[in-house]
Design a protein around this nucleic acid. Structure first.
Lengths: 115, 115
DNA sequence: TATCAGTATTCATTTTAAAACATACTGAAT
DNA sequence: ATTCAGTATGTTTTAAAATGAATACTGATA
């Protein structure tokens, strides 16, 4: 028996747009937490991320998508909040489907890695 | 005609080992430059990377691979140098083949991305 | 019209990683 | 035994990124 180590393949998937990286797993998690908590503030807390950072990510997504992924509600009862748009919901679904297909393929394609 | 933006998918592939990321495109480039230049020093210069960093990457690769990917020559004529081992050569080939299959699949799998 | 919680934005601070610097070691060749 | 270019390694500087703190804005509700 020789010293055989286990190697596995990892794949990171993201969507690119003319100005660079547009949507990866990090922003998808943020979208999911916004859906779950109803606000950018609470989504950020959930992820132990600075509000400032979360807000900037949302801003960037909204500006670079064809239509906004997050709808922001200003003022009013509870101070406002944020919710996903239809496009935001679709983005999550689309991303995960794509990611799954690619990761499944990668795994299937990989056996007996040796270095 | 509506404002249709172009989105494309990007995929990053790397090899994972028990202790974490083991071999990705960055280390592969380093291996290629070592092969091309015959030393870690010159490979690092080629890549505008600090020698220290390049050396550490080589060290890590060698320790975590089943057998070293880079053979280091100490002292002597020209001060020494570094060259790829058989395993190092195979690592480059294996990595690129795997990466190509996965990227081709990803591209094929992706059309009409809309966000 | 005062409250309230979240959004919007700037600025200072901290954390982190990368690069730069410095110095010792190696061994063939002269 | 000196030279030489590359390896080996610790320490210091620099730069970039994330965080934190501070402040103004918003608008439904009581």
């Amino acid at each position: 028996m020789s010293n055989v180590k286990k190697y596995s393949i990892e794949v990171r998937v993201w969507i690119e747009e003319t100005e660079g990286a547009f949507l990866g797993i990090g922003k998808i998690w943020l979208l999911e937490n916004i859906r779950k908590t109803g606000s950018i503030t609470n989504a950020a807390k959930e992820m132990k991320m600075a509000y400032r950072q979360a807000w900037q990510l949302v801003e960037e997504m909204n500006q670079r998508a064809e239509s906004p992924l997050v709808e922001k509600l200003l003022g009013g009862k509870g101070g406002g909040g944020a919710r996903l748009t239809e496009a935001g919901e679709r983005a999550i679904t689309t991303f995960y489907e794509l990611e799954k297909r690619i990761k499944d393929f990668a795994e299937k394609e990989t056996q007996n890695l040796k270095f």
